[in-house]
């Protein structure tokens, strides 16, 4: 009978749970799903990580290649993120060119990299003006159950932590780059940005880490990206129900707490 009520009136069904300050899967309003991370699973990539946030599964693979540095910044390399939401992960995505959601998430990840200065692009330069690393970060969602922004950010961070770049020497005579695969160094990760997403219900209630069903019923979303110093790298609220200043402050406080939880997990790997 509950299943019938849920199909006919999903919003009312959900409100009944919210009145008791809990959610259908038994979580509190401010509780995250179980987060697990597995690094180094893709051996052909220079760095990889698989993150599971409840049912949401995201895998990030990083490949490092050579390129000439940009003309206006000869001492910088490139980081190119790309998020793919294939039809595999959810019925809402169709095969074909990337849809609006995938492009918006790609832009969000690019902004997080830029804003948080997770890696200094100067570190990716090998020879000023001639050779630099370009890191292609491909993030693929394998199972879409809401809160894709948090999972992608965490997967990117874990994968970058896992990257081992081989040493490169320029042969004086030929001018070509010689890669020494036996000598590898990890990347210098300066900041650890962590994203926390909230869904807004009925203009008033904020719940953390929404599932796909909760996202469909929600009237708005907010994502806060913090780094370990408590600085805000991004306050991303793409429209949706309006929020008062006090509620935004609550979100920021919860995001800072979440950062500590994720940092503990990162330190274990």
């Amino acid at each position: 009978m509950a299943a019938g009520f849920k199909t006919v009136e999903p919003l009312e069904y959900y409100r009944r749970f919210l009145k008791e300050n809990c959610r259908p899967d038994g979580r509190e309003l401010g509780e995250f799903r179980a987060t697990t991370v597995n690094i180094g699973s893709i051996t052909t990539a220079d760095g990889s990580a698989l993150v599971k946030l409840g049912n949401t599964t995201v895998i990030c693979g990083i490949k490092a290649e050579f390129a000439a540095p940009p003309v206006d910044a000869t001492n910088k390399g490139y980081i190119v993120p790309d998020v793919d939401l294939p039809p595999l992960c959810s019925a809402r995505f169709r095969p074909g060119p990337p849809g609006e959601e995938a492009q918006a998430v790609s832009q969000f990840i690019a902004d997080v990299i830029e804003n948080s200065q997770i890696i200094m692009k100067e570190d990716l330069c090998i020879v000023n003006g001639k050779l630099a690393w370009v890191l292609y970060c491909d993030i693929i969602c394998l199972d879409y159950d809401g809160n894709i922004l948090d999972a992608c950010t965490f997967a990117l961070l874990a994968a970058l932590n896992n990257v081992q770049l081989p040493a490169v020497a320029i042969n004086e005579e030929t001018g070509l780059a010689e890669v020494n695969l036996k000598q590898k160094t990890p990347l210098n990760i300066r900041k650890y940005p962590v994203a926390t997403s909230f869904a807004i219900f009925d203009d008033t209630l904020l719940i953390v880490d929404p599932t796909a069903e909760e996202e469909d019923l929600a009237t708005g979303t907010v994502t806060i990206v913090t780094d370990e110093e408590g600085r805000l790298c991004s306050v991303h609220k793409p429209g949706g129900s309006p929020l008062t200043g006090a509620k935004l402050q609550d979100c920021i406080t919860r995001a800072i707490t979440r950062h500590k939880e994720v940092k503990q997990l990162m330190d274990k790997i």
Binding site: C233, V235, K237, P242, T244, G245, L248
Partner: peptide, 21 residues
Amino acid sequence: RLLLSTTRGACSAKEVEYVRD
């Protein structure tokens, strides 16, 4: 009330509150 927010670059929480006001 706040309808949309997007930021580029990093800043502290106090700065965000001040700017919002």
